[in-house]
Simulated assay, not measured.
Amino acid sequence: MSKLASPQSVRALLERHGLFADKRFGQNFLVSEVHLRRIVEAARPFTGPVFEVGPGLGALTRALLEAGAEVTAIEKDLRLRPVLEETLSGLPVRLVFQDALLYPWEEVPQGSLLVANLPYHIATPLVTRLLKTGRFARLVFLVQKEVAERMTARPKTPAYGVLTLRVAHHAVAERLFDLPPGAFFPPPKVWSSLVRLTPTGAPDDPGLFRLVEAAFGKRRKTLLNALAAAGYPKARVEEALRALGLPPRVRAEELDLEAFRRLREGLEGAV
């Protein structure tokens, strides 16, 4: 068993370096070797360079390297430099100490992979940005179960919304398995899930997502009233909804991605 695959060894490692898991960085270190193996298997094949965000103490980093991946690990917490230099000693990893939200993702090689236990507080903006770049062949990451549910939700469900549609526009999404709090140290208060996104190559569509964000901006309202409140001419929205055969009291969560695309086209074509 890896020396990083038990709460006791992780606690001892942190104490030896005079460190602690810092909530500001969303640090919950994965300490389940079974789940480490499953994440690595879900990420295969390593057809391009792997980027890991939030390597923490290096457990997943090491597992990826030992499986033959070419890894760049991006860590914001400078306190962890001596720990990572110890736990990854002798391994061919590229360590970058930087805020992942400031990393030049648009410049990574085409066909790159993301494999990460993402800090919960940056997961949504980071995944959104990575999908927009069009540079990734696959993204495999841990997030809060609630966020995973939002990424993979179906229409007419409470979890369905802007994030669901953003992910669906760019990729095929899979929620592979859930992890209990005890798989991490310290254990979080919520369950986590492993998500795998396989991009389809669809480029960003700012006009579509202005519409989507407006539609969900006032979720309790009808789609007609939500879009009117966001500045879309009410008569044009009514006409576009009629053309799609949608009732005037339809709500945003009832439309799938294709329906939003058709609505956007209808609004552009309405006179």
Rank of each mutant, 00 (worst) to 15 (best):
V147A: 01
V127P: 02
T133L: 06
T152R: 08
F136A: 08
T152P: 03
E149C: 02
A171E: 13
F136Q: 08
A183G: 01
T152I: 07
D178Q: 09
R135F: 05
E146Q: 05
G182V: 02
F141I: 03
V147L: 00
R154T: 07
Y160S: 06
A173V: 13
L142D: 07
P158E: 04
T133M: 04
P181M: 01
F177I: 00
L165K: 12
A173R: 10
G161A: 09
T157W: 05
L142G: 03
I122C: 01
T128P: 05
H169V: 11
L130G: 08
L130N: 08
A137I: 09
A183M: 03
H169F: 13
R175E: 10
E174D: 12
K145H: 12
R138M: 07
L142F: 07
K156H: 13
A171S: 14
A183T: 06
L126W: 11
F184W: 02
E174I: 10
A159V: 04
P158H: 08
A183C: 05
T157C: 03
V162G: 10
T124A: 15
V147D: 01
L142H: 04
V143K: 09
F141K: 02
T128E: 15
L131S: 06
G182E: 08
T133K: 07
H121W: 13
L118R: 01
A171N: 13
H121V: 06
P125C: 12
P181E: 01
M151R: 02
H121S: 14
G161M: 10
A159R: 14
Q144N: 05
A171C: 12
H121F: 15
E149F: 04
F185I: 01
T133S: 04
R135T: 07
F184M: 00
Y120T: 10
V162F: 10
A168C: 11
F185Q: 00
A153Y: 11
V140F: 09
I122N: 00
L165N: 11
V167R: 11
N117I: 00
T152N: 09
G134F: 09
H170M: 08
H170E: 10
R166A: 15
R166E: 15
T152A: 12
A137K: 12
A159D: 15
N117W: 00
V172F: 12
L176G: 00
A183L: 06
A159F: 12
V167T: 12
H170F: 13
F141T: 00
A123D: 09
